[in-house]
């Protein structure tokens, strides 16, 4: 690495400016979450990067403490939407991963299921609206509207094809010999799946689950259509954060956005080891 100094400077400048470009909105949100109303509203004459008088008012406001400055009071706090988002995204991810992984394994190993792979994609072929309206009617009939489990079920169904396709590629890449070796030594199929295949698939499971979770966590449209009041999720709740007096409540929105960013980040860090390490199946020659 004996590149010239000007080149190195240029390289880092280019990288930093690209990183900055993608981080600016996030940083702006983080900064805004800690600003008092005077600094984020239109009445604030000048916008600054750093809050001049940092405050936790936006967070307090979200969780029910009325603010003298805002004059408005929320009809409900952010607690229930956060719970709703967590429940529906987590259980939706579980449904998608369990059914998707099972289907992928069966199809990859035994070739059963015929046209299932294509059938699974068709849900994504149509525009979401076209799919969601009939679902809405069915869910209303089943009494699943505005319940976290009704939402989780739809999330599971909608993201299952992703889980399926991702896991199928991983299963296809895993050499059969590893399972055959265990079978020859007298293991049952089921035991091989539990003790050999799944443990070796841990990195694949982790990265697929993260992907599916983020899809579910950031959904807006489905939650908007299938929840009305009790179980609205964070994105839907966020859209409702406005008042006729002050317009959009940007401070509160930024604070909620910051909270919403926590679970994917934690999950990402938790499975980073697997994501970075990638897949090394059974120490095989390549």
């Amino acid at each position: 690495m004996n590149r010239s100094l000007p080149f190195e400077i240029f390289r880092y400048a280019a990288i930093l400016s690209l990183v900055a470009l993608s981080l600016v909105p996030t940083l702006w949100m983080a900064s805004m979450a800690f600003k008092p109303i005077a600094e984020w509203s239109a009445t604030g004459a000048d916008l600054t990067w750093w809050p001049k008088s940092p405050t936790l008012d936006n967070f307090r406001f979200l969780f029910g403490e009325s603010s003298s400055e805002l004059i408005v009071a929320l009809d409900r706090t952010a607690g229930q939407p956060i719970l709703s988002s967590l429940l529906s995204a987590v259980f939706g991810t579980l449904i998608a991963m369990i059914s998707g992984t099972s289907a992928a394994y069966g199809l990859s190993r035994f070739g059963s299921g015929g046209n299932l792979p294509l059938a699974l994609i068709q849900l994504r072929i149509f525009p979401p609206m076209a799919v969601m309206i009939p679902v809405m009617i069915m869910w209303a009939f089943l009494g699943l509207i505005d319940t976290w489990y009704g939402l989780a079920l739809v999330y599971g169904i909608v993201t299952m094809p992703f889980a399926f396709w991702l896991m199928k590629t991983f299963f296809d890449d895993m050499p059969r010999e590893i399972e055959d070796a265990a079978l020859v030594e007298g293991c049952s199929r089921l035991r091989v799946f539990w003790k050999i295949t799944l443990p070796m698939m841990r990195p694949a499971l982790a990265s697929s689950a993260l992907f599916v979770f983020i899809l579910n966590w950031s959904d807006y449209l489905i939650a908007l259509l299938l929840t009305t009041r009790d179980w609205v999720t964070i994105p839907v709740y966020m859209a409702s954060l406005s008042s006729s007096m002050t317009g959009q409540l940007y401070g509160a929105k930024a604070a909620l956005g910051l909270i919403a960013a926590i679970p994917p980040v934690i999950l990402g860090i938790a499975i980073q080891k697997h994501l970075v390490r990638g897949l090394t199946f059974g120490a095989l020659k390549q």
Partner: peptide, 20 residues
């Protein structure tokens, strides 16, 4: 007769070691 009951040992070209 399923392979688990044949009493054979099999060494594969690519080892098939359980890396976990």
């Amino acid at each position: 007769v399923p392979m688990g009951r044949r009493g054979v040992g099999f060494v594969f070209q690519n080892y098939a070691i359980f890396t976990h």
